[in-house]
Nucleic acid binder design. Structure first.
Lengths: 247, 247
DNA sequence: CTTGTCGGTTGATCTCGATCAAAGCCGTTT
DNA sequence: AAACGGCTTTGATCGAGATCAACCGACAAG
């Protein structure tokens, strides 16, 4: 398959700059230059892609699957600090050591770019930096919302918030769905949810059960979550519901 | 005072790109273009510069003083999500509404740039975007460390961590000081510390007292903190102390 | 079929930090 | 000097979530 083929047949789904379907200024020759320095890697669930402190000579974009960034204290307490879904970017141009553990939550396919050439390309292609800045600012916003969750929300609100975030993200992928009704796969174990929310897995389990028994959510098998009334779920998050951006 | 004068006499201390004394590629004429679109604003302690949701047609750089970014829930629970010290950047190119409340903690002087012209300048001056990306990535790292603190640390560790962060930042400003011994002004009230750490002000007060009575810190007047042995303080943070970057 | 493992649930108890309440300490105003 | 307001400290009590422990169900391996 020619490089050209790859780029356009897949709608450049592995170009980190295009991934979120925003950068309309991606020129074909710039994409080609990206093609030259990229390669794929796949990982199985549970596998750690990078350890905190490791040398990291690539940056990458998640093509499929879910991965997490975690920080761990000496005594084993761990906190998830990033959840990577398809189209998310990993790695940091200009730094050669990873700051967090990166672990596959489900099987993951990454599209990697060798770091040095990627940095060179960034120098020559200004709007890649602009796009990356935009994505990083989005991540920073998400991190700050997450901080409010960690610092001030109750266990119940935390669970509801996590479900709302996942549901919203799911909905944005496939916007066609019944009004207010959302169903999605939650790819996280109770323990991973606990690490996300700064709780213990027992508390997560109890609160999920409680939301289920009150009809806010329905469980479908192991990982399926069904939200009959999204607005109802939002009420449980403690967030401003009339903030406009409902979904 | 001529523009030239201002730029070079103050070592461009109000240029957000140069603020952290990193961007060695700032050309005089680029700095001049920044000069043309900037203005100063000062605020008194307690004053809110921007309300979440407000229109924000500038970006800015803190020249002096301390400001905070906070998020508040309907019922009044608030969480600080950013602490802005001199040289920090506020605002987001490409977005016209503020996402957080920005409040002066001490009297603050801001160097503001009208947003649209700043964005235009960014287009024409690629390494401004690069520099901004770098700064944003630093902030993201800080936010993620903060998430570990909020999600997993004990009250005592939280206090120690905050003090260590402030001490470290202080030390980097004026690197000349006795080995292990650091003194600094903590510009936050107990309530602000509580908002930073996801605690109540009573808990903050108790833990500070406890650290004092155990000799980890000494209080000098209202706001002065003296750390006789920085390594000792670090032990209390729960962080990896042999992570190299001690101070 | 048994055994093991992994993820999840549920129960009993404990504890850290929240909450409620009362003073204390300045610095400023009257 | 007295009164006041903002900030802090300290005490008593309460409760949400952690901890410890048992058990369940699904699935894979022996």
């Amino acid at each position: 398959m020619s490089t050209q083929e790859l780029v356009f047949s897949k709608d450049c789904s592995d170009c980190p700059i295009r991934h979120r379907a925003v950068c309309s200024r991606c020129e074909p020759d710039e994409l080609l230059r990206l093609e030259e320095i990229k390669y794929y890697r796949s990982y199985e669930a549970g596998q750690t892609l990078v350890w905190s402190g490791d040398r990291m000579d690539f940056v990458a974009s998640v093509v499929s699957g879910v991965a997490k960034l975690t920080q761990t204290m000496e005594d084993g307490r761990t906190q998830m600090v990033g959840l990577l879904l398809p189209s998310d970017f990993v790695g940091r141009p200009g730094r050669d050591r990873a700051s967090y553990d990166v672990t596959a939550v489900t099987p993951v396919l990454m599209c990697c770019f060798r770091r040095k050439p990627f940095e060179d390309l960034m120098e020559r292609t200004p709007h890649i930096a602009t796009r990356l800045l935009e994505m990083t600012l989005d991540e920073l916003d998400a991190a700050r919302e997450w901080m409010l969750l960690l610092g001030r929300k109750t266990a119940r609100e935390k669970i509801a918030s996590l479900l709302a975030i996942m549901a919203r993200r799911e909905a944005s992928e496939r916007p066609a769905r019944a009004r207010g009704r959302v169903a999605f796969e939650l790819p996280l174990t109770r323990e991973a949810m606990a690490d996300y929310l700064g709780l213990t897995l027992e508390t997560v389990s109890r609160q999920v059960s409680s939301l289920k028994s009150e009809g806010v959510i329905e469980l479908e098998g192991k990982r399926g979550i069904m939200v009959p009334d999204f607005a109802r779920l939002l009420e449980e998050t403690g967030d401003d519901t009339d903030g406009g951006h409902l979904i």
